[in-house]
Amino acid sequence: MTPRLTTLVIVGLVALVGSAPLWATPYHITLMIPAMAYGIALLGLNLLFGYAGLLSFGHAMFVGIGAYTTAVFTSKLGIRSFELVLVASAVAAALFAIPIGLLTVRYVRIFFGMLTLAFGMLFHSFLFKFYHLTGGDSGMRVVRPTLLGQDTQELDKIAFLTGPFFLYVLALLVILGLVMLRIVHSPFGLHLKALRENARKAEYLGVTVRRFRLAAFVISAIYCSIGGVILAVPTGIADPELAYWTHSGNLIFMTLLGGFTNFFGPILGAFSFILLQDQLMSATQYWRFFLGVVLALIVILFPRGLMGILESLMARFSRGRS
């Protein structure tokens, strides 16, 4: 697919999603909010996984940091500006990510994965056990934020979520997507790909491997925390389960489902996962079993995920036309 056609398809898809309040049911619109939140989080996670080659099993921690920052700001401090919450969650995520990254990016493969898992478990334990600070297993309440200084208390919850909040989140996805697109095509992005492919060679070509891995780790944490901020608003609660290791597993599942070798794969994975989970949950109580089957099939049969399947179909179509 040519760059111009890709741009047209993306613009068309954004327009289609943006017009959802005109044609989709409120249920499906509210379903798209977590999909977009995960889309943002996975754009970050895939900078670390798809571009830098580091698979984290602990990034749910940063989703949790985003959600709990929202709760602290809106319900404890009384600061309801969504923009301030986004900035604060990004700062909080970076403050956690820098020391954790300094320790973890010294390692690769399973050692990196296990270390990130360990830090994620530590953070979850903190949320779960320090009841007086975090609300323990009950979580922390999230109050509806103001958007661009506009208070929307006069709207009922569904009207708020399907109207201004939905469009705000879509705008965030587009902006953060463009920022990430710029990052992966920058000199920094090329160096990330080089160290993913061959770290030793990259070092001899002057690539500061650990520094770049750390930068990718911090950026991915910020994106995940922003995803966490968005996830907390519709549910009205910052739940410790958001930081649990199974949630990190879900993030990886979505990335693999969409395809980590393509920039847009994780976003497709987020939408597909939410839709699939919703359909399976309404169809059977054994939905986790079927999700497992899907994951196994994707990894075995389609390692490049749904985007890989689409790319193959497009290539076959192009060959057929020529």
Binding site: H185, P187, F188, L190, H191, K193, L205, G206
Partner: peptide, 23 residues
Amino acid sequence: EETIAVAEIARAGKAGRLWASVR
């Protein structure tokens, strides 16, 4: 092209540029 560009970016001190475009 990308392989040689990796070295050139490092040589020219452009590696830290997150907002620049290689292309």
